[in-house]
Design a protein around this nucleic acid. Structure first.
Lengths: 157, 157
DNA sequence: CGAATCTCAGGCGAACTGATATGC
DNA sequence: CGCATATCAGTTGGCCTGAGATTC
């Protein structure tokens, strides 16, 4: 098992999870990466955009673009920071909280399968666990509405 | 350690690896995902586009678009299949082979760090291993030319 | 005929660069 | 002043849909 197998397994595992999440999120008119943002904000604590970028392993410019989309959809708000005129504090709106809660429920099975794929046999090699993650999460084997990301129900532009 | 940590760790690990690979590949005017295609073709065996899509866990349409780009750059060729008029056989050109070989060398350290991150302590939890993968692969800690994917040296359109 | 393979048009979100304005 | 923060314009590649042509 070389590094190449491991790298490819990591790639496939991630893509599999990402596509499955995308399919689930599409129902609510958001993308998988936007759901990651919602999760980071779900604690209720207001956050600077840069802090969000750090927490989601993303770029500040990318985060901003995603926040603009989420704001248009009414899922987040960006309020001026009273103590720092440069920063804006991002918070979930009520709808944003509800959307996150709904998505959190819908993705529960996914998380359970993820954990199950990893912990079934502790002696198995890391790479093969990643391969199992990919297979377990394959969106084609899921009872989920097929992703229709470009015509989602709630999209508004 | 819940499924959410695991999912986020998988995401971060993949993104870290992907960005590092992107930074290395940018030097040769290709993307990380195009490098995945080159690797799949590196055996020298001609392959149908659909077979390529399956091997790289990608979509046939996506693969086609990437192949068009790679063909323009002279890294691959698509020859008609003599026994099946529908299919086209994809092969690396000489330049494609050389590019793959060079990238394979350049990414050797990455693969080594990847394996090292996983196997350092066999008792550690799977999630923490993924976190270590991410940290070990962080492109900001790499002595690699910063990615400049939009003005690569060999780009031609 | 149906099924497989590829092509094409169109669109979208993520990601990045680089420049800029503003406030600390 | 430098530095941090966010905005904006512009570009790219990946990914997907949906339709069509061609061949088996």
């Amino acid at each position: 098992m070389g590094g190449h197998s491991l790298a490819m397994a990591l790639r496939r595992a991630y893509l599999s999870m990402h596509r499955t999440t995308e399919a689930i999120c599409a129902e609510f008119g958001v993308s998988a990466d936007q759901f990651v943002l919602l999760c980071a904000l779900a604690s209720g604590k207001a956050m600077k955009q840069q802090e969000l970028a750090a927490r989601t392993a993303s770029d500040a410019n990318t985060v901003r673009a995603m926040l603009v989309l989420l704001e248009r959809k009414g899922l987040i708000e960006r309020r001026p920071n009273p103590v720092d005129g440069r920063a804006r504090m991002v918070v979930l709106t009520r709808v944003g909280q509800q959307t996150h809660a709904a998505l959190w429920k819908k993705t529960r099975g996914l998380r359970r399968r993820l954990v199950g794929a990893v912990e079934r046999e502790l002696t198995e090699s890391f790479t093969q666990k990643l391969v199992r993650i990919e297979r377990t999460l394959d969106p084609r084997k899921l009872s989920v509405q097929p992703a229709d990301p470009h015509k989602p129900t709630t999209k508004q532009r």
